[in-house]
Design a binder for these strands. Sequence first.
DNA 1: TTGTAAGCGTTATCAA
DNA 2: TTGATAACGCTTACAA
Lengths: 354, 354
Amino acid sequence: VVKTGDGNAGRPRNERRTVTATDVAQAVGVSRSAVSRAFTPGALIADSTRQSVHAAAARLGYVPNALARMLISQRSRIVGVVMGTLINPFRSAVLDRLTAELHVAGYVPILFPVTPDSSVEDILPSIRQYQPEAVIMTGFTPVADALARMADSGVRVVVLNRGCEATVAADFISCDHMGGAALVAGRMLAAGYARLAVVGTGRGQVTTRSREDGFNAALRGAGLQPVQTVEAPLGYESGHAAAVRIMRDRRLPDAVFCLNDMTALGFIDAARTAYGLEPQRDYGIAGFDDIPMSAWPPYRLSSVTQPIAALAREVVTAIGRDGAGQSATCLLLPGSYVPRNSLRGEDAARRGAG
Amino acid sequence: VVKTGDGNAGRPRNERRTVTATDVAQAVGVSRSAVSRAFTPGALIADSTRQSVHAAAARLGYVPNALARMLISQRSRIVGVVMGTLINPFRSAVLDRLTAELHVAGYVPILFPVTPDSSVEDILPSIRQYQPEAVIMTGFTPVADALARMADSGVRVVVLNRGCEATVAADFISCDHMGGAALVAGRMLAAGYARLAVVGTGRGQVTTRSREDGFNAALRGAGLQPVQTVEAPLGYESGHAAAVRIMRDRRLPDAVFCLNDMTALGFIDAARTAYGLEPQRDYGIAGFDDIPMSAWPPYRLSSVTQPIAALAREVVTAIGRDGAGQSATCLLLPGSYVPRNSLRGEDAARRGAG
DNA sequence: TTGTAAGCGTTATCAA
DNA sequence: TTGATAACGCTTACAA
């Protein structure tokens, strides 16, 4: 029996009627199921049928309605990407890889921005409405409680670069921030620096804390501890301000570990502009993230590269893996230290262009 | 009659059954319609009913299924965002504003990355499957033909910062690149530069071409033309290479207009590193986009700010406006010249931090 | 290999 | 103000 509706209910009158599978079926003279099968990879259908259906579809401008498909098949292929602001180039790089990776895996990312004033609590329920197969959280600090509720509702939750909460049934995938920071500490110590400072400390993000912890732990291993610690949110402006604050102090450090590159860049600029201090020559400095700008000549900042591509790949793998979301999973991918010219003794060849 | 299905068809057995409106209705002792109304703002429903429905929904963990809602109501609130890579900080800034703005307007952005190897042609049909109310194209050069087909299928198309194709029924919203570039030319001329070069020319993007055209036109108005033109894709590396190429030439320019900031930054670094040339002191330079890095002390690059927030706002306004998508619409928002310290005579006060 | 028919979870319509 | 009922456009047993 052919549906009676005109397929145009509630639609602005100037829009053309939606072309449905039924239309194509009629045009070709087959059943609606045949049309469906023609668009289902690997379905049992005669080649000739598929071809004529495709031809008619192209002619009529038919495209399967993904919404209806999701509804009936109970598979949305939708992945909610909940993320903080993109001001930090590292964040954009992650989003870039992530969307690319999701796409090749056949997922559709839908974006939910987390701004300072829109709490995650508020957006999670609205995300659930879209029946995502998974939700990726990154670039902001998720509230454990919200995570748990999300996971409880049967949605797979993957947390990228936000530590590991063993109590929540989610996949936590992260760069090994502690290890990376330990690498930095090791290099600083090896280079003979002894009066070390840390910039960017604070209650902030888990990642940040891990870096600080890793750095301090490595120092402790050598019987040391930071001579100075500047509490501040991460970012260029913060680094700038931190430099000023540090220089005012009497107990000057001989090397500083900025908890991310943007902060380090701000630090370098302030130290140079206001005090004529050059990295490497006058003090050691290192960052974390290895953003493109760190390689630029005015900075040549040594840093820790996060394996962005691998992280992104692991995230979509985690989404695809079944049986997941049942218990907490943690995956730590190592970062690698990139020596440039911001620590004593380093002498990275200048590449032609940044 | 209550539906007979268990609401769990085809679902992995370990996932809990989906909670539907019917469940809530039963729990409260009202009809499914009542539940629907309880979640429809402005619907005709008794306050007491709404409250008990909400209470039951919260208890059972019910969230309306947006997919089903879209299907029946013929309004998806989905906006396809088709965009190129985010390597350029300007792009991320745009995406940031755009998603935020879409969100407050009640739209849901779904992201379609355009990579060099995935042509737009291929992704547009797959976008249509999701029944978007509109598609925003930005950060890549859309094929006019693909645009037209999209618009033809009844989807509103908004093109951000990609010129204006009067033949396509789409909304073109863009910064006034010609005007902005003319501003740059004017400043350079006023500063007494006469031997001007342009870097970043090429068949590339419409935006880029507009900038070049605007610059050249302004020069022509003064009876001049560029003494040199470097054809190159935009980007840091390109700017770097361009500097080297320009310096090799005998007819050296006294000022160069890089078609975007990233390119200018690369140029500055190369000129300084390889030739000891300082912007402003030894040559004039300006860019376009005003990315955050341009304000950093090593660069202090004069540039043209694009009104990102306004552009984003106009885009979602265009989406919401009805009757649109019927004919081509063009909107040009002016950019503004930001003098810093890269042209002779400029003396921007150094802000404390970047 | 194809067609029939039963849903998926919601909202729109109409009558009560 | 509420409830029954018919779509929305599709996939998928099951039967042919």
